[in-house]
Amino acid sequence: MNNSFWTFYNSNLFHVIVSTVVACATSITAIPVIINISTLKNLMASPIERSSHQQATPTLGGVAVFASMLISYFLWENPDEGQLIHLSISSIVILFFLGVKDDILILAPKKKMYVQIGASLLVVVLGDLRIENLFGIFGIYSVPYIISLPLTVFVFIALINAVNLIDGIDGLMGGIGMIAGGLFGIWFYLNEHYALACLAASMAGALLGFLRFNFSKTSKIFMGDTGSLIVGFILALFAVRFIQLNVQYRFDPNSTFAAPILAIIVLVVPIFDTLRVFIIRLKNKKSPFVADRNHLHHLLIDSGLSHFQASLVLWCFTIISTLLFVFISKNAENTTSLYLLCLLFVVYMTVAHLLKTNNQKRLLKLQKQTKSEVETEKPETEEAFKA
Results as ranks from 00 to 15, higher is better:
Ala180Asp: 02
Ser27Phe: 04
Ser52Met: 02
Trp315Tyr: 15
Gln360Asn: 12
Ile301Cys: 00
Ile279Gln: 08
Gln369Asp: 13
Pro32Asp: 03
Val247Asp: 07
Phe156Gly: 05
Met223Asn: 04
Phe233Asp: 04
Gly174Gln: 07
Asn359Gly: 00
His15Met: 13
Met173Tyr: 03
His307Thr: 02
Val18Tyr: 04
Ile157Tyr: 05
Leu245Tyr: 11
Leu355Thr: 00
Leu305Thr: 00
Gln360Ser: 11
Glu77Thr: 12
Lys101Asp: 03
Lys220Asp: 03
Pro379Thr: 03
Tyr73Arg: 07
Pro288Gly: 04
Gly136Ser: 05
Ala108Lys: 10
Ile17Asp: 09
Val124Arg: 09
Phe251Ala: 15
Val268Gly: 02
Lys371Asp: 14
Ile230Pro: 03
Leu134Ser: 05
Val18Trp: 06
Glu49Cys: 02
Val351Glu: 02
Leu299Phe: 02
Ile280Tyr: 05
Pro379Trp: 02
Ser216Trp: 03
Glu81Phe: 12
Ile92Lys: 06
Ile85Gly: 08
Ser321Gln: 04
Val346Lys: 02
Leu305Ala: 01
Ile160Met: 08
Gln360Gly: 03
Met349His: 09
His295Cys: 02
Phe8Val: 10
Ile157Lys: 01
Arg362Cys: 05
Leu300Lys: 00
Leu172Gln: 03
Asp80Asn: 14
Gly177Leu: 05
Leu208Thr: 14
Pro109Thr: 00
Val65Met: 09
Ala310Glu: 00
Asp80Gln: 12
Thr152Ser: 12
Glu380Ile: 12
Asp170Leu: 01
Leu314Lys: 00
Lys217Ser: 12
Thr322Ser: 13
Leu364Lys: 14
Ile131Arg: 10
Leu129Cys: 10
His53Ala: 01
Ile243Tyr: 06
Ser51Ile: 02
Gly168Val: 01
Gln309Asn: 06
Phe272Trp: 06
Val125Asn: 11
Leu98Ile: 05
Val155Trp: 13
Ile264Gly: 08
Gly136Met: 07
Asn36Arg: 15
Glu375Gln: 15
Ile89Pro: 09
Ser321Thr: 10
Gln54Asp: 10
Ala197Gly: 05
Val115Thr: 10
Tyr73Val: 09
Tyr348Pro: 04
Ala23Arg: 03
Ile179Gln: 03
Ala206Met: 07
Ile243Asp: 08
His353Gly: 06
Leu107Ala: 06
Met173Leu: 11
Leu165Ala: 01
Ser311Glu: 00
Asn10Thr: 11
Gly118Pro: 04
Ser202Cys: 10
Asn294His: 05
Leu122Asn: 10
Val347His: 06
Pro32His: 04
Asn42His: 12
Asp128Trp: 08
Lys330Trp: 13
Ser72Glu: 10
His15Tyr: 11
Phe156Ala: 04
Gln369Cys: 10
Ile89Phe: 12
Tyr339Asn: 12
Val18Arg: 05
Thr318Pro: 00
Asn133Met: 04
Leu105Ser: 11
Arg130Ile: 09
Ser90Thr: 14
Phe8Leu: 12
Phe210Cys: 03
Leu354Lys: 12
Asp302Gly: 07
Glu132Tyr: 11
Phe14Asp: 07
Tyr249Leu: 15
Leu126Asn: 14
Ser303Phe: 06
Val63His: 03
Cys316Gly: 11
Asn254Val: 13
Thr256Phe: 14
Gln309Asp: 01
Val347Leu: 14
Ser202Pro: 10
Ala30Ile: 15
Val33Phe: 14
Arg281Gly: 04
Ile71His: 05
Tyr194Gln: 12
Asn284Trp: 01
Asn246Gln: 10
Ser38Glu: 05
